[in-house]
Amino acid sequence: MGNRFASELRCGTFGGILFAHRDLETGDIRGFEQRWEKDGEKNKARFAKGGRKSLSIFGEFQSSIRLVVCKSGLDALAIAIAELRHRSDTLYV
């Protein structure tokens, strides 16, 4: 995966993942969706207090000719990683 989605992800509690939700007009981060697993226990999707939900998006708007819509940021990231070697023209939402 390299750094392709580094601007959309952060490391969170218990080595979990924070997925950026951005304002679609300005690109500013509005909040983060949090997912983690510790000792086999998974958290339910949580959202940052005071944040505003929008979409977690992976990929480039300008070069995308294909759109994949998923239930969560974690699902979108998993599909993006699985397709990474074969697809660079996709926007994962």
Results as ranks from 00 to 15, higher is better:
Gly2Glu: 07
Ala82Arg: 05
Arg22Trp: 12
Ala80Cys: 11
Arg85Asp: 09
Arg85Val: 07
Lys38Asp: 00
Gln34His: 09
Arg87Ala: 14
Leu84Asp: 12
Leu24Gln: 14
Ile81His: 06
Lys44Asn: 02
Phe32Met: 04
Leu9Arg: 01
Arg30Ala: 12
Lys49Asp: 06
Cys11Tyr: 00
Lys44Glu: 05
Leu84Glu: 11
Asp28Thr: 04
Ile65Val: 05
Gly31Ile: 02
Val93Gly: 01
Gly73Gln: 03
Leu9Met: 09
Tyr92Ser: 15
Gly31Tyr: 01
Lys38Thr: 07
Phe47Ala: 08
Ser54Leu: 00
Cys11Phe: 02
Leu67Glu: 08
Arg87Val: 06
Lys71Asn: 13
Glu25Pro: 01
Ser54Trp: 02
Arg4Ser: 12
Leu9Trp: 00
Ser88Lys: 15
Lys42Gly: 09
Gly12Phe: 09
Arg22Met: 12
Arg35Ile: 01
Leu67Val: 14
Asp39Met: 10
Leu77Phe: 13
Lys44Gly: 04
Ile57Gln: 07
Phe14Met: 08
Phe14Ile: 12
Ser63Ala: 15
Gly16Tyr: 01
Gly73Ser: 09
Arg30Met: 14
Leu77Gln: 08
Gly40Leu: 13
Gly73Val: 01
Arg22Asn: 14
Gly12Met: 07
Leu24Lys: 12
Asp89Thr: 08
Ile79Cys: 09
Arg46Ala: 02
Glu41Lys: 08
Ser72His: 02
Cys11Ser: 09
Ser72Thr: 07
His21Arg: 13
Phe61Lys: 00
Glu37Cys: 12
Gly31Glu: 03
Ile17Leu: 14
Asp39Tyr: 11
Arg4Leu: 14
Gly16Met: 02
Phe14Ser: 15
Lys38Val: 05
Glu25Ala: 13
Glu8Leu: 12
Cys11Thr: 10
Phe58Gly: 08
Ser56Met: 09
His86Glu: 15
Arg35Lys: 02
Glu8Lys: 10
Asp28Gln: 14
Lys38Met: 06
Gly12Gln: 10
Asn3Glu: 13
Gly27Thr: 10
Lys71Ala: 15
Glu37Ala: 08
Gly15Asn: 14
Gly12Arg: 05
Ala82Gln: 10
Ser88Ile: 08
Phe47Leu: 10
Ala48Trp: 00
Gly12Ala: 15
Glu33Arg: 04
His86Ala: 15
Ile29Met: 00
Gly15Lys: 10
Trp36Glu: 04
Thr90Met: 10
Ser64Gln: 12
Ser7Glu: 09
Gly50Thr: 04
Gln62Cys: 11
Thr26Asn: 07
Arg46Gly: 14
Leu91Ser: 11
Gly73Leu: 01
Glu83Met: 10
Ile65Ser: 03
Lys44Asp: 09
His86Tyr: 10
Gly40Arg: 10
Val68Asp: 04
Ile79Thr: 11
Glu25His: 07
Gly31Phe: 02
Leu77Cys: 06
Glu33Gly: 11
Arg30Lys: 15
Arg87Cys: 11
Gln34Trp: 00
His21Pro: 03
Ala48Glu: 00
Gly27Ser: 10
Arg35Leu: 01
Phe47Lys: 06
Leu77Tyr: 05
Ala76Glu: 04
Asn3Pro: 07
Gly31Ala: 11
Ser63Thr: 13
Arg85Glu: 03
Ala20Glu: 01
Arg10Ser: 03
Glu25Asp: 13
Gly16Phe: 00
Ala20Tyr: 03
